[in-house]
Design a protein around this nucleic acid. Structure first.
Lengths: 215, 215
DNA sequence: TTAATAGTGTCTCTAAGACATTATTTT
DNA sequence: AAAATAATGTCTTAGAGACACTATTAA
């Protein structure tokens, strides 16, 4: 295949190009705390979001998946782009653009090597390098937005589940209590009762739902 | 300044890197048509969105502004990132990432060289190369979202203006008629009457507003 | 039986939508 | 005066929020 030449006879690689990295905020609901946490990996002198440089011919999403397989043992995610951070002085190693990503994962699917990574509650994250705090803010806002109007869009809950379980998940994501009546009215049209009921719980057994829409 | 070396003794530029481009959908309301238009520039064999390669050490937003100064004679914009297009086979010239941007500009500030560029109604845009149709769709959706809840956020209208002028602008952006009562109730809290009235118009003179919030 | 929780009914208040009425201008 | 448009009032309906009541389980 012939190399493209522009009007000055130069190929694309004759011009300066930045390195391109991906950094990802992997969010999960921490079971005991009932709150959103973010996956951080250890560096020489602190913590940062997992990230990697884009390899030749690689898709951004694939670079994200590759970085997460190694650092957190998770696969099968579907990362979403948030923003490109492009401040030339952002990274002291050189000219590096970073494409920030977000995804959410069920806690049970995170298999973390404690010596390499940990999950920190988003309200307790310290100052991170490379503007990673800003990525976390964007990521949390983005996830909260998605969870406002529809039931568990990131599939953090394994169906079937009860409305209460769903609401507790949404409250953990939102970081605040939600109103029961409004929550039910908003979510129920997008749920299907499977005709069975929760067992072994105190109180009247709750109907079990799947995420399938009613229509 | 010493060059950074990784654990293999290589610098960042020893690894393959993509070229990074910016492509921008510049949207404006076409006066006669009362509809959204997008700025297209001529290429050898058709039309495309204005774009350019990122120069060394340059910010993405500055690359956008540089490309638009030349092609459309507009300056002072504030482009917003939409998405990074990263399909390695997207551009037949090589490995090129494109960061799509959007901005809106008052029609009166577009000074177009007819031999280089034109503005086409977004409903009449033909098939474009490099996935540029998708950028236009994202751009229009993004602008419509911004205009749903607040009065002329992109400052397409020069204050002072009447509620009718504002509604006509919003209808051009939305691409559909809006309900007068709802529109007024939504927008009026974020407008300040300047105490003067439109003159030379048929009917009862309308109050003039500025975009300043009432609080 | 009591405590806990689910499911359902319903009251009030507000906002959206729709429409009518009045005010004030140009033609 | 007639036509046009702005400004305002108000009626109806739907939904949000709040709360009460009933149903059904475990302890």
């Amino acid at each position: 295949m012939p190399v493209y030449r522009d009007s000055s006879g130069r190929s694309l690689t004759d011009y300066p190009r930045p390195s391109v990295a991906v950094d990802t905020a992997v969010l999960a609901v921490i079971p005991d705390k009932e709150t959103l946490g973010v996956l951080l990996v250890r560096t020489g002198d602190g913590w940062r979001l997992p990230g990697t440089f884009l390899h030749e011919g690689e898709r951004l999403a694939d670079a994200v998946l590759r970085s997460l397989r190694v650092k957190a043992g998770v696969s099968g995610l579907a990362p979403t782009q948030l923003h490109v951070f492009d401040d030339p002085s952002r990274d002291d190693r050189g000219w590096v653009l970073s494409v920030a990503h977000v995804d959410a994962v069920p806690w049970s699917r995170l298999t973390i090597d404690e010596s390499l990574a940990r999950v920190t509650s988003v309200t307790e994250v310290r100052e991170l390098p490379y503007g990673h705090n800003q990525i976390i803010d964007l990521a949390v806002g983005s996830l909260r937005e998605r969870y406002r109007a529809s039931p568990d869009p990131a599939h953090l809950l394994e169906p079937p589940f009860t409305l209460r379980q769903l609401q507790q998940l949404h409250e953990a994501v939102a970081g605040e209590p939600l109103m029961r009546d409004t929550f039910r009215r908003t979510m129920e049209p997008e749920l299907s009762p499977i005709g069975e009921f929760a067992i072994g719980t105190v109180g009247k057994p709750a109907r079990l739902f799947t995420r399938e829409p009613t229509r």
